[in-house]
Design a protein around this nucleic acid. Structure first.
Lengths: 195, 195
DNA sequence: ATGCAAACTTGCAATGAGTGCAAGTTGGCG
DNA sequence: CGCCAACTTGCACTCATTGCAAGTTTGCAT
């Protein structure tokens, strides 16, 4: 069992996150001040920054499960798999994983990303870091054929295709065939690598 | 000839940019305040925001020539060119264009992007907008085979490969074979589309 | 249980970006 | 010449974020 201090810290952290999500949903991201959040979580405003380095960080708590899934796909590659095969499998895994559950956290994040450019920018930054990590693992998995730069180019191409499609789709609010269009578009963009 | 008002405005705008670049070079981006810049350009601090919406904007003045080059490549496509062929040619054009001239502006921008995450994030945001624009033109050029989403996926893949490689390369400060490694990496990542 | 050091909380004062407003200037044009 | 729109600027204000110093609380060894 974690120590009292740790349990307490975790509880406070959760309280902050819960308060923040509730306020963001009710008043919007920009209209909610850090002071509001701290008050709602019943801590001093100054204390907030002991838990989150910035207001933006509230929208990206914890690590990215998608990175973990990709790394797993790399680790569990088959002997006949080429680097591109591994990335294809990784995409499928991630897609299958992040399906069905609609967590409030993520819903708010998407909403805020649409309206606050700085937050969208922050998300892109995290995506870049994710690419770096995945590329590092991929290069390590194929030391004889891929150097860091080539692995990064490859991962960049795959993730770029997926996010490009997702971004384009996000700008068509209507469109009920979203998922199908997304799968079709990424499939066509990445087909040259499939076999 | 533009009106006096316009000439004046342009002169002031340049003065602000020049002052900013000089100060960024001397003291660094973060150590330079907007008030400093305004003072150096001999205008009121408040006036600064009538010329640039934010301090970050100083690093990204004017439109992206790379977008223009890509659009040109799309416009001047040959009858036998597939979408991917056009994008390949666009990359070559851009690469050839942005070669040789080392403008101070761009040098400062790269330097600042390395040290200030928020600025790097802003750059990624602009890149996304560039992708959107290019994808829009590409989809318009191939109305029968590409919809918005597929075009975006394709453009995302190409730009993703390039920036992935560039990012990886930027993290190896040493390495004198930079350009060669970059060309090799993007070539390998995009080869499946070449013919 | 006792007591000390490390970790945590908080208020206070600053800094710096960005904004709304209202008063004063200046350029464009009939 | 005279009016209107555009431009400039100072002022006051909101907010995120940080450094600091003064309390509090916990972990842990004695």
């Amino acid at each position: 069992m974690p120590t009292l201090r740790e349990r307490k810290r975790e509880r406070t952290r959760q309280a902050i996150l819960d308060a923040a999500v509730a306020l963001f949903e009710r008043d919007g991201y920009e209209a909610t001040t850090v002071a509001d959040i701290a008050a709602a979580a019943d801590i001093g405003t100054r204390t907030f920054f002991g838990y989150f380095a910035s207001k933006e960080d509230l929208l990206f708590p914890g690590g990215d499960e998608r990175v973990a899934a990709a790394v797993t796909a790399i680790t569990e590659r088959g002997p006949a798999d080429r680097p591109a095969d591994v990335l294809i499998r990784a995409l499928r895994t991630v897609d299958a994983a992040g399906h069905g559950f609609v967590d409030r956290q993520a819903a708010v994040r998407r909403q805020v990303m649409r309206s606050v450019p700085a937050v969208h920018a922050a998300a892109l930054m995290r995506q870049l870091e994710a690419q770096r990590e995945i590329a590092g693992h991929l290069a390590a998995a194929y030391p004889d054929e891929l150097d860091d730069v080539t692995a990064s180019a490859l991962v960049g191409a795959f993730i770029g295709a997926v996010t490009g499609a997702a971004d384009a789709l996000a700008r068509h609010p209507d469109r009920e065939d979203g998922r199908a269009a997304f799968l079709d578009a990424t499939d066509r963009a990445l087909r040259p690598w499939m076999r």
